[in-house]
């Protein structure tokens, strides 16, 4: 199949899919083809999960083969854990149709994974704290306004704000209701129009990035 024809087929599939999903949204339940397409999308997403795992392994095997500086020891560690989790889950599933029936899998998931996940997330708090100190400087009038509004909102979100002064949450709420909400609303509406424009461009075959091509090529 020539390159041009192959490209046209991709455009055609995209256009047909878009039209089906678009029409179905406004006439719900009238087009079983839309449901069928969504089922395909779910199947593809599940296949992608497996594909992602294979791709991850391939990447880290390559790191080890090439002895990439500062990376390959971690790649070995990743592959070891990958194999342990995979095999322990598989044996649990084979035994009782439940991966967590294997105590090794269960222990790894329940204790190291949970603790590490929560620790990593909590550590961001320390970075935010030091970043706030370094970045929140009233270098000009705009930065000063942002700083003042930010301080009121921070103290509004914490109950200690109203303990310090009952006016803090009132002012903080004012910033949220008359500053943040309208701003976010504008952003959402503009983004929605942008999505519409992007959708039409993709539908007409003008949005080449969508097909893995670079504009102008």
């Amino acid at each position: 199949m020539s390159e041009v024809l192959r490209r046209e087929v991709v455009y055609l599939i995209t256009a047909i899919t878009t039209i089906i999903m678009f029409v179905e949204f406004f006439f719900i339940g009238t087009w079983s083809a839309a449901e069928e397409l969504r089922t395909w999308a779910i199947i593809i997403a599940n296949i992608a999960l497996g594909l992602g795992a294979v791709r991850l392994l391939a990447e880290h095997v390559r790191n080890i083969q090439r002895r990439r500086a500062g990376v390959w020891p971690f790649s070995i560690w990743l592959i070891i854990l990958f194999v342990v989790m995979f095999l322990s889950g598989l044996t649990g599933y084979a035994a009782k149709h439940d991966p967590s029936s294997n105590p090794v899998y269960n222990w790894l998931f329940k204790w190291p994974y949970t603790s590490l996940g929560q620790t990593l997330y909590a550590i961001t708090g320390f970075y935010i704290f030091s970043a706030a100190y370094r970045a929140f400087r009233a270098r000009n009038i705009d930065a000063a306004l942002l700083l003042i509004a930010g301080c009121f909102v921070i103290l509004t979100n914490a109950t200690v704000g109203e303990v310090i002064w009952s006016g803090i949450p009132v002012i903080g709420r004012w910033f949220l209701d008359y500053g943040q909400v309208p701003g976010m609303r504008c952003f959402l509406i503009v983004a929605a129009f942008g999505m519409l424009a992007y959708g039409f461009r993709a539908l007409l075959g003008r949005e080449r990035g969508f097909y893995g091509e670079v504009a102008g090529e």
């Binding site: 704290f129 700083l147 103290l155 914490a158």
Partner: peptide, 24 residues
Amino acid sequence: RMDAINISHILVIIAVLLGNIGYF
């Protein structure tokens, strides 16, 4: 946890104030 939120938020405000006092 709200206690931790209160303390951390107050500390952030103090840090921001210190930074700005030093800066100005």
